[in-house]
Design a protein around this nucleic acid. Structure first.
Length: 553
RNA sequence: UGGGGCGUGGCCAAGCGGUAAGGCACUGGAUUUUGAUUCCAGCAUUCCCAGGUUCGAUCCCUGGCGCCCCAGCCA
């Protein structure tokens, strides 16, 4: 529902619907999300189903989930399950309306016979190659098939035999008799049914002829009473055919509306390419945290709310658009900032020894789980004379704008004391290996009088810190549009993941799979649900924090 | 050069004849025990271009230019 808190910006589809309601052309919104169960859903699909479910919700209608399973050689039950899970994950529900195009195969068959009887469809016996040759080109009309004028009786008989399995794949095909010289290629006697001796994931071996998309989609919409059949731009040229079948069949007419599919910078969206990334092991699977799939994003730690916000924020239009990855990342940060518990973790440790802190003392400091939301409670942070800080937070010869640690400088330990760097210890190679510091013991929870310490750095206590694996993910491609590369595989970012070890506060060992934390000053990290073991979590970097200092550098 | 679409700031996107919403990005500045967050401020005299209609055009008309899609027995 659109509320004052989440204003929905207008788009051309809403405008159409509003006009239809006002003119009385329609009085309800029934939409559908029609994936083919041949792969996992990606963020582009999320745009589509958020639109469909969102519209239904806003206009008090309903949205169906219908699997467009008309091509048995590509479809599997595994995907049917995964797709439902993903749609649910984003919080949408189709209620009673889970449908399959294959549920309508009997009806489709009857309709095909109806069109044959009306002289509007015929069995063609040309080979696929011949059909292609006779289809003409974009600028030249096609040629009628020599089988175009078969009698209705002969067509009926042949189609019946096709159905009974008397012919091998490709021997014949049922075509709509429209116009071989149409400037719209889709109207040049399009295929309606092909012979496919293949096992279907739902209908088994009942059929050996299967309807084409064009002879199934609109009719499926019609059967379900779909009022607005929303699809992507490449189907614009199919709309006249969609309407032709509906009209010739004399059945309820849904309205097809096309919108631009999503393109996200630094990623690829085509199923073929995503499949290749998986098959060729460029990623670990469909759920690799770098994949634009919903399973991948879930594993990465993107919250479903963030993806929904993203889908609303990008709008809906008809111009081929490229959305900047930063839009998605900002939606993720926005959501996580509100919900993620804060923790401290050091990714690149540098030892700090406090010379004036008792070597046998261990303190338990209180630290809020969320500084802006005290109601989320606190946790205890062990503190001792030996700590680790991040190497990035120390510079031996710092530039003027650097306000972290350096020789003789003071810095605040997050949730702890202010310390001062007294001495820098190096190894034989001149590498800084340790910092000797002194703590101002009167600065816990309060600022010192007379001086201002601007720098605040995170840390862990050396003896209590735990080692965990962290996976630092970055964009999978290093070109905005990987398709512009000679080969998109060449645009793969060789540093899209870096595995390393981090030192974290001890409580993090008990973190549950799938939960996300903010490692303060670093980024959001989510416990990997595949590779983590009890007491041995693996953290996926979901997204970094914004870093204006990195920009200054 | 057949047909179908689309052109509003760096990226999206409202607007539908009355004088350019919003988001992301970016730039300042304030607050801050996260250089995060939050907060304020700035960021298109102009809507692909050229004509025309009109008191007035991003919105209407004409003509250009640019980009996307279509020749699967895929969806």
């Amino acid at each position: 529902m659109s509320t004052p808190e989440s204003p929905v910006t207008s788009n051309f589809i809403r405008t159409i619907i509003n006009e239809d309601f006002e003119s009385g052309k329609r009085d309800q919104v029934i939409t559908r999300f029609p994936p083919e169960p041949n792969g996992y859903l990606h963020i582009g699909h999320a745009k589509s189903f958020s639109l469909n479910f969102g519209l239904a919700e806003d206009f008090n209608g309903r949205c169906h989930l219908r699997f467009d399973d008309t091509n048995p050689v590509k479809e599997e039950d595994e995907y049917v399950e995964a797709i439902q899970e993903d749609v649910h994950w984003l919080g949408f529900d189709w209620g009673e309306h889970l449908h399959f195009a294959s549920d309508y195969f009997d009806q489709f068959y009857l309709w095909a016979v109806q069109l044959i009887n009306a002289g509007k469809a015929y069995v063609d016996s040309q080979t696929a190659e011949q059909m292609r040759e006779n289809r003409g080109t974009l600028t030249e009309p096609g040629l009628d098939s020599p089988y175009r004028d078969r009698s209705i009786e002969e067509n009926l008989e042949l189609f019946d035999k096709m159905k009974k399995g008397d012919f091998p794949d490709g021997a014949h095909i049922l075509r709509a008799k429209i116009d071989m010289s149409s400037p719209n290629m889709n109207l040049r006697d399009p295929a309606m049914y092909r012979i496919l001796h293949a096992h279907h994931h739902r209908t088994g071996d009942k059929w050996c002829i299967y309807p084409m998309y064009d002879f199934a989609h609109g009719q499926g919409d019609s059967i379900e009473g779909v009022t607005y059949s929303i699809c992507t731009l490449e189907f614009e040229d199919h709309r006249p055919l969609y309407e032709w079948f509906i009209k010739e069949l004399g059945i309820f007419a849904p309205q097809q509306i096309e919108f631009a599919r999503l393109n996200l910078s630094f990623t690829v969206m085509s199923k073929r390419k995503l499949l290749q990334l998986v098959n060729d092991k460029h990623v670990s699977g469909w759920d690799d945290p770098r994949m634009p799939t919903l399973v991948g994003m879930r594993r990465r730690g993107y919250p479903p709310e963030a993806i929904r916000t993203f889908c609303e924020r990008i709008g809906v239009g008809k111009g081929a658009s490229w959305i900047d990855l930063s839009v998605l990342e900002e939606c993720v940060r926005e959501q996580l900032n509100k919900t993620a518990f804060r923790r401290q973790a050091v990714l690149n440790p540098l030892k700090v020894t406090l010379s004036n802190y008792p070597t046998d003392q261990i303190e338990e400091l209180d630290a809020p789980n969320h500084p802006q939301q005290p109601e989320l409670g606190t946790r205890k942070l062990p503190f001792s004379h030996e700590l680790y800080i991040d190497r990035d937070d120390f510079m031996e010869d710092p530039p003027k704008k650097f306000f972290r640690l350096g020789p003789g400088r003071e810095v605040r330990l997050r949730n702890g004391y202010i310390i001062k760097c007294d001495e820098v210890i190096k190894d034989e190679n001149g590498e800084v290996v340790e910092l000797k510091c002194s703590a101002d013991l009167d600065t816990l929870g309060k600022n010192p009088v007379g001086r201002k310490v601007k720098g605040i750095i995170h840390w862990v206590s050396a003896s209590q810190a735990k080692k965990v694996e962290v996976r630092l993910y970055d964009r999978l491609f290093n070109q905005e549009n990987p398709d512009k590369a000679e080969n998109y595989l060449n645009a793969i970012n060789p540093e899209s993941v870096k595995i390393s070890t981090a030192l974290v506060e001890p409580g993090l060992l008990e973190a549950k799979n799938g939960t996300t934390f903010q490692f303060e000053r670093v980024g959001y990290f989510t416990v990997d649900s595949e590779d983590s073991q009890s007491g041995k979590p693996v953290f996926n970097r979901t997204v970094t924090l914004r870093d204006t200092w990195a920009k200054l550098k």
